[in-house]
């Protein structure tokens, strides 16, 4: 245990808590509130599923088409992919996701004014409250992203089958999939962290006197 060093009169400095403590409290808080977070979670899942599906379809499509052409000399009808529009749609869905998470987090911070004020009265530092809220949304973001990625991979594979017949199944180039998933996980986590920045900062700056506020 690191002991406070500087003392003014009989007052010492508050110790910094280890990150593990913030993780523990954030997890506890999330478990209990999961029901309320479900909407946010769904936004993340949808956006990340969309991203992953489009990304993988774009990689699978050409490979499968070439393979089918080489095998059976079939003329495979290729739908015209409008990449510009897709990129636009993905960006939009990610933006909606960002705003949605940010909004949900902000509401949660405002609702929890008394809890935050009380923690400050009990000696919580600003940095601890900041970590608490950042961690909560990052956990939520990672959970949503992982679900979204799984869904996205399944959708992309299903789409290949629908588009190029069942023969396409064995031709799917799974090799690149882990990398796409990893990148998507990074994007999802970054977006949730970015979305949580402002609400977490708001929470950290809340005054301990908020604990006294009676009205909601």
């Amino acid at each position: 245990m690191n002991l406070p060093v500087k003392a003014v009169g009989q007052v010492q400095r508050q110790v910094q808590l280890p990150l593990s403590k913030a993780v523990e409290i954030a997890l506890k808080s999330m478990r209990v509130r999961l029901g309320r977070s479900i909407l946010t979670l769904i936004t993340i899942v949808m956006a990340m599923a969309f991203l992953t599906q489009v990304w993988l379809s774009n990689r699978f499509g050409p490979v499968i088409r070439t393979a089918l052409l080489a095998k059976a000399h079939l003329a495979v009808h290729e739908p015209v992919a409008d990449n510009g529009r897709l990129v636009w749609l993905i960006s939009l869905s990610l933006l909606v996701c960002l705003v949605g998470i940010s909004n949900a987090m902000l509401m949660s911070v405002m609702e929890r004014f008394r809890e935050i004020g009380t923690m400050k009265c009990l000696g919580a530092l600003d940095s601890f409250i900041l970590k608490l809220f950042l961690l909560e949304s990052i956990f939520l973001g990672v959970a949503g992203t992982v679900c979204g990625i799984v869904l996205g991979v399944a959708l992309a594979a299903a789409m290949m089958v629908v588009r190029y017949s069942t023969a396409a199944w064995s031709l799917i180039p799974w090799g690149g999939v882990p990398w796409v998933c990893l990148a998507a996980l990074g994007i999802g986590t970054a977006i949730t962290a970015a979305a949580a920045m402002y609400p977490a900062w708001k929470a950290a700056r809340m005054e301990p006197i908020a604990a006294m506020r009676v009205e909601v």
Binding site: V11, R13, Q14, K120, G123, A124, L125
Partner: peptide, 15 residues
């Protein structure tokens, strides 16, 4: 300062 106030609230005062 902020750290000393937090210490005060934590150790010296119970609310």
């Amino acid at each position: 300062d902020a750290l000393e106030l937090a210490w005060l609230r934590c150790r010296k005062i119970g609310y």
